[in-house]
Design a protein around this nucleic acid. Sequence first.
DNA 1: GTCTATACTGAGATAGAC
DNA 2: GTCTATCTCAGTATAGAC
Lengths: 197, 197
Amino acid sequence: MQLKHFSDISAAATRVVDAAERLIQVHGYNGFSYDDISREIGIKKPSIHHHFATKAELVRIVIQRYTDTFRGALNAIEISDSGAIARLFGYVDLFSQTYEKDQRLCVCGMLGAEVKSLSEAAAQEVQSFFQMNLDWLTKIIRNGSQSGELRFTSSSPEAHAYALLSTLEGAMIVGRGLAINNAPALAGRTYISNLPA
Amino acid sequence: MQLKHFSDISAAATRVVDAAERLIQVHGYNGFSYDDISREIGIKKPSIHHHFATKAELVRIVIQRYTDTFRGALNAIEISDSGAIARLFGYVDLFSQTYEKDQRLCVCGMLGAEVKSLSEAAAQEVQSFFQMNLDWLTKIIRNGSQSGELRFTSSSPEAHAYALLSTLEGAMIVGRGLAINNAPALAGRTYISNLPA
DNA sequence: GTCTATACTGAGATAGAC
DNA sequence: GTCTATCTCAGTATAGAC
């Protein structure tokens, strides 16, 4: 079947996606129901099914929109900040801002853990999110290395991109388990502190 | 009520815990049921309830045993490996070994993401696991710094411990989303590559 | 686009026999 | 310690009226 794109959805459907996104970030895919959304935004379960026939389809749209918003934020960092360190700090801030809202997780961090419960299409969207992040980080780190702003010896820009993304996703999870307030900033800035020339 | 300790359980109960542990690592707390365990080990649901009255209690025991096993592994590393780098590589291997089994996650990485769905007692056990890891890593990293084997400037041993644990927990999740084989080893070794003097 | 009503399934859990 | 039978509730989803 032909899958919808998130930008096509109505105002009412947008409210459903907003609620689903928040519920995923707090409770995970297997931890929320249409009933939870119903209570949160004040429309009944069948109305939600009218907008999103299945939970799998709803989640796919949530991830798609989340990834698109994140892409915009990455572009904004490149415009507002110059230099690798400043841009990496801006990147860390994206995760901090999410976590500061009631210790919400990255949508794809949560769904990455639950990926074996997702539809094939949703799992694909999670993969796209991670790949987009790795591509961007690799570019920033490679440029910083070539300009001399960053210095690292044995590992590649790709490896540092993967390690930094992992650090931030993990910091949110460990931070929540330990009830740490500024978890992503703490771990992310520590990682970056290893890289300056 | 008086809570049980994992070391008190019978052989049949141990098989239940084994299955629950694996199911948590693959599907998460909200992603498995007593029925799944039933199918896996061939006893009926009420028999499982006989051993563990509630799912919350079962999960608490799973975490408790997992933490105890991990504690033993940390001690074994200190005996078999000398030097901070070797011990940190041994630590990374613990996560690699878990991930190599069908891309299983760390029990507490998964449950940390789902911590808002857990009982208070289970959440406490997750916290204890993370704290044990941070204490051990901090000790190893501080010793390595004092001996001159490790070198880092702006961050503390505590901060590096937190960042390295986060990196490994995150690497498993991102790695699974991207279907990367040696995810924890890749990210963990990259992190450690930043630290040698 | 939203509703009431309802189907169907699976979940966690209990009663009581063996 | 394990079983059959059953309870109750929540979950996803559909039918059909407004």
